[in-house]
């Protein structure tokens, strides 16, 4: 039981408009581990999380969470399944009309009938875990980016989920709050033993906490393995990405006609 992967994605196809985003992505997310999904910007990593959460419906393929096919569920069962998931959005997505305390209390209030005193204890516990117990009366507009994300993490953990999805947790953070978040994600996972999916393109930080890594490019899984095996991967595309080289098989230039032709042709023929 505990050996079977928590999330199974099989042959996933998804397109938005005329643009294919996924062309047959298959991956397994093991139970109780941190799995990183990496890839260059614009490869639909956030879309993948939304597909796992059932917010988007794929064109083909299936997503299974703990044996349940997400896209075959009724709205009601899907919402019940989501109580077992937490998601940390890129922007934090705190409810702007509620205070920090109420934001963290929100999942507890809507899904449980706990007495007020217990809600308070639980919220303070979660806020203490992210080090923001003192900020409980602030409104989201008064928080910095890093603090917003930590509050959002506390909220995502409020219901003690089994699966937690991180959407670009490190993007746009200064080195200090980035370090704080890296430690936090690692610690939370070790302490609670939950299954985590980290979507990111911050290679160094992600590789330092991930147990297993999938690299996605061109709508397909390009490579997968533990951080150590990826680091020595011989595939030029993988090594370009993992080592952060500017130009290589994944071109620096957006496809364009020949530069000299473009420059000279602009005045004459048009």
């Amino acid at each position: 039981m505990s050996d079977s992967p928590f999330v199974v994605i099989d042959g996933l196809h998804f397109s938005r408009g005329d643009k294919d985003i996924f062309r047959g992505v298959s991956l397994n997310i093991p139970r109780g581990k941190i799995t990183a999904i990496m890839g260059p910007s614009g490869t639909g990593k956030t879309t993948l999380l939304k597909l796992i959460g059932g917010q988007l419906t794929p064109d083909a393929g299936r997503v299974e969470i703990d044996g349940q096919r997400v896209h075959a569920l009724s709205r009601k069962v899907l919402f019940r399944l989501r109580r077992r998931m937490g998601m940390l959005f890129q922007s934090g997505a705190l409810f702007s009309d509620l205070s920090v305390f109420e934001n963290v209390a929100f999942p507890l209030r809507v899904h449980t009938d706990l007495p007020e005193a217990m809600v308070r204890d639980l919220v303070l516990m979660k806020l203490e875990a992210v080090g923001l117990r003192g900020a409980r009366e602030l409104m989201p507009s008064e928080l910095s980016g890093g603090m917003t994300r930590r509050v959002a993490l506390a909220r995502a953990l409020a219901l003690d989920p089994e699966l937690i999805l991180y959407d670009e947790p490190f993007v746009g953070q200064d080195p200090i709050s980035m370090g704080v978040l890296v430690q936090l994600i690692k610690r939370v996972n070790e302490a609670l033993g939950l299954t985590a999916v980290v979507v990111s393109h911050d290679i160094k930080e992600t590789l330092s906490i991930a147990d297993y890594v999938y690299v996605i490019a061109d709508g397909q899984v390009m490579a997968h393995g533990t951080p150590a095996t990826l680091d020595v991967d011989q595939d030029p595309r993988v090594s370009q990405f993992v080592h952060g080289e500017a130009d290589g098989p994944v071109p620096f230039h957006y496809p364009a006609p020949d530069f000299r032709h473009d420059m000279l042709g602009a005045g004459g023929s048009r």
Partner: peptide
């Protein structure tokens, strides 16, 4: 619209609230 743009609606959905 702003709630949608700042992903508040999505996060509400993920918390399991319609």
């Amino acid at each position: 619209g702003l709630m949608k743009a700042t992903e508040q609606l999505s996060s509400m959905e993920m918390i399991g609230v319609d």
